[in-house]
Write a protein that binds this DNA or RNA. Sequence first.
DNA 1: TTGAAAGCGCTAACAG
DNA 2: CTGTTAGCGCTTTCAA
Lengths: 336, 336
Amino acid sequence: MKNITIKKIAELAGVSHKTVSRVVNNEKHVKEETKNKVLKIIKEYKYEPNYFAIGLKTRKSKTIGLIVGDIENPYYARLAKGVINICESSNYNVIVCNSQYNNELSEKYLKMLISKGVDGLIISNIDLSVDSVKTLIKRNIPIVFTNIKYEIPGINYIKADDYHGGRLAAEYLTKLGHRKIFFLRPPDVYGAQERINAFKDTMTENSIYFDDTYFSDFVFDEESSYRAAREFISNQKDFTAIIAGNDFIAMGAMEAVFDLGFRVPDDFSIIGYDNLKIAKIMRVPLTTIKQPKYLFGKMAAGKIIEMINNPDTNMDKKEIVIKPELVERMSCKNIN
Amino acid sequence: MKNITIKKIAELAGVSHKTVSRVVNNEKHVKEETKNKVLKIIKEYKYEPNYFAIGLKTRKSKTIGLIVGDIENPYYARLAKGVINICESSNYNVIVCNSQYNNELSEKYLKMLISKGVDGLIISNIDLSVDSVKTLIKRNIPIVFTNIKYEIPGINYIKADDYHGGRLAAEYLTKLGHRKIFFLRPPDVYGAQERINAFKDTMTENSIYFDDTYFSDFVFDEESSYRAAREFISNQKDFTAIIAGNDFIAMGAMEAVFDLGFRVPDDFSIIGYDNLKIAKIMRVPLTTIKQPKYLFGKMAAGKIIEMINNPDTNMDKKEIVIKPELVERMSCKNIN
DNA sequence: TTGAAAGCGCTAACAG
DNA sequence: CTGTTAGCGCTTTCAA
């Protein structure tokens, strides 16, 4: 039971294998009659072109790689959905890699993807070394970042204005009268640092004191956030607000507050980031900063496919930056 | 700037390309000295074996395919995480397909995956035709289902005992005194039907009336659930409880209840399914049925890799069935 | 321990 | 409109 190859079909149809190749690829210069004959045999024998043979010749894989920090974080899940759906409509598949915010793992995934000949790469919030990124650029493989840690010329990215988003959160809280605000730090990706900078700037401008103890260690998901928040809450009395690195992290924080017998926002105001669907229906509906996650995925995929299809033209818009917005709900209290 | 191939390395090292192949694949019968020499050249020239050439020969892709209903549903996201993480540890990549619970799209994805020569397939809650599944089995490609719609002999699956889970939910509600219970139907996958059967059996055994109007149309996600729940709530007065097809759906239902000015569980008790992380921190902490999502992914991936590595041996355990458990929180009221 | 030859299944270039 | 020839980069015999 061997595989049916293009040669066998050619034999069966009494034509050359190149002719079969022509009809398979829908090229012109094939007589309607021949074409139909070949098509019939193809159908009858359920011929399917060999992916590897094609790839070996064309160096196209019709698949793109996506690296995310944590597919379980609804932010990434929704972004991935955007990527996958758009890719599907252009007949691309996507290999999803879960870096777990881990440097080494990211690099490993990168290598795997490249060695598999992906046609493009979408890299979301991971912490690649500058060297890797530069090698990537040199290789000339289409690549789009959604949020980046380094500003490297010639790089395509799609991101939100995180500094602005960070300000939105910090200023909102200070206007509500909060002075001691704890920052649950999300993984160290570019966007996170921008938001922390915005926070610090806001505090400084308002002459509000802060130091390193106002920042948690990196917190990755709902669980690690829960632990960090719990520890933080247990050890102090003066803080009135928490900035959660993202909504997933905010979940953990809110759980910790409730489990310790405190209330939101009466004892602690909490503000998140991302505006996940869950934000609306959380224990206390979460005030947060809105980002268009599906759109990020959609745009990144669209851009990649565009780049794949026009390898030579220098795409015009290199950077796309989206303005985040504050979504006010019930998790923050005015204490003025 | 051509690619460095095995031949070039051979030339540079002054050996045959087969020898290079041997050291690349870590085969024996290579003198330590030759090996080191070759290794040095490989490193120097950054040689990377060509994926397509290898695939053409070996018919192995080192990638597996995963089809899920909706990657945005945290159930699937967590399952996918399990699959991806386990695959990574065995150096497999995973192509994630988002079927959107759509029959045709599922079939299309299936074709794409097969044509890409995936080494294995994990199919999660989709609605493939019996024919497709049979073809799949005939092709002899390792495949694991997590939940299935058809019982086909020789198929591997990992699932929860959905009938049992359905009973858990229905009996819990009836014991609490509920008689008019609305069922927000999840997409028509095997597990869903089992749970509906369990619901009907429970009602019948308790001599509780129900008819078709007690069931919503299929509801896919938080948004469609919101719409369906909203419409349902607006049009009736007697129902006291809602069984949500899963926790993602429960989110939408709870939103609808609140937006319409009702309360949970005072006006409507809601029970979910899956025990997502969000269940704990929802507006009203959700009573639900627990399923080990990460474990499903992990087991499915483990099984697939095992099957890939032992293509001949008939794996023993064909079916793995896990017992779900009730997690009681605050979304259901005793109205006895 | 090493190498030569063949071929996996396809496409590209050119010839007819 | 169709066919021939070559070769993509690797692995697999088999022979040395």
